Simulated assay, not measured.
Amino acid sequence: MTKLMSILAGMMLLVPSGSHAATLYAGYAGGNGNDGVMFNLASTSGFLLQSFDIHADFGTFDYRVYHHAGGVDAAIADPAAWTLIGSFDALTTAGEGIGTTLDLTDLLLSAGTHGFYITDGGAFSVRYSNSSEAPGTALASSGPVTLQVGYGADAFGGIVPSRAFNGSVTFAAVPEPAAWAILTIGFGAAGGALRRRRGQAALRAA
């Protein structure tokens, strides 16, 4: 049994340790703001989106977080194309220069480009920065995930390009399918070996 457990422990080491939370930090430079901000997260592998820390004026506001698979540009002015993934009513913010957390509770996303729109619905509390780069340009990266330059947005209208999300993104990488397959095979083999040992023990006892 000890040998079997050692083999399983070795297989566990083959599984990427990316399931630990990581933070992609974009800073709190400010300098501009609107009712919301649109931006992309591009990832080379699947990941669990856990939360956004946003940059906002101090006060109590209602925030909504929307998602569009494929990125912002494909649905930039089409409200029906977006999916609401988070509602935060009467949220008191930390104020400028400090992150206010919007907890999304492990939203599983595939590899690729994902668009997000964070809005206060018209209160003009969302802070961001102007950028000299075009939308879609890499702004910050952590592990497999890259934050891209996006847009300032006024309730799916009044879209202003080259605006940079302020705050941070907390996520956890998802192990590759091959790693899960190795682990599954290992546990299957361990289960088979355990059943054989029990069968042999039963025969000896008989």
Rank of each mutant, 00 (worst) to 15 (best):
2 T>C: 00
2 T>A: 00
2 T>G: 03
8 L>D: 01
10 G>L: 03
13 L>P: 03
13 L>E: 07
17 S>D: 11
19 S>H: 09
22 A>C: 04
24 L>S: 01
25 Y>T: 06
27 G>M: 05
30 G>W: 02
31 G>V: 01
31 G>F: 07
33 G>R: 09
34 N>I: 03
37 V>T: 12
37 V>Y: 08
38 M>G: 08
38 M>R: 12
39 F>V: 04
39 F>G: 08
40 N>C: 09
41 L>W: 08
41 L>S: 10
42 A>V: 13
42 A>N: 14
45 S>Y: 10
48 L>Q: 12
49 L>Y: 05
52 F>K: 05
53 D>A: 13
53 D>Q: 15
54 I>H: 13
56 A>D: 11
57 D>P: 07
57 D>C: 10
59 G>C: 14
60 T>F: 04
60 T>S: 13
61 F>K: 11
61 F>C: 11
64 R>P: 09
66 Y>I: 08
68 H>Q: 15
69 A>M: 11
69 A>E: 14
70 G>E: 11
75 A>L: 07
75 A>F: 08
78 D>G: 07
79 P>E: 14
81 A>W: 13
83 T>G: 13
83 T>S: 15
85 I>M: 14
85 I>K: 10
86 G>Q: 13
90 A>D: 14
91 L>A: 12
91 L>Y: 12
96 E>N: 12
100 T>N: 11
101 T>C: 10
116 F>K: 08
118 I>V: 08
119 T>N: 10
121 G>H: 09
126 V>P: 02
127 R>F: 12
128 Y>L: 05
128 Y>I: 02
130 N>W: 06
131 S>P: 00
136 G>N: 05
138 A>G: 03
141 S>R: 09
141 S>F: 03
141 S>L: 01
142 S>L: 05
142 S>P: 02
145 V>W: 08
146 T>M: 08
147 L>H: 02
147 L>V: 01
149 V>W: 00
149 V>L: 07
149 V>G: 03
152 G>C: 06
154 D>A: 11
154 D>N: 14
155 A>C: 10
157 G>L: 11
157 G>H: 10
160 V>T: 11
160 V>P: 01
162 S>Y: 07
164 A>F: 07
165 F>A: 02
166 N>Q: 05
166 N>K: 03
171 F>I: 00
172 A>I: 00
172 A>H: 04
173 A>R: 05
176 E>T: 01
176 E>M: 04
178 A>M: 08
178 A>S: 08
178 A>H: 04
181 A>V: 02
183 L>N: 03
183 L>Y: 07
184 T>P: 04
184 T>E: 11
186 G>F: 04
187 F>C: 06
188 G>Q: 12
189 A>S: 11
194 L>C: 06
199 G>I: 09
202 A>S: 14
205 A>K: 15
206 A>D: 15
206 A>F: 13
206 A>E: 15
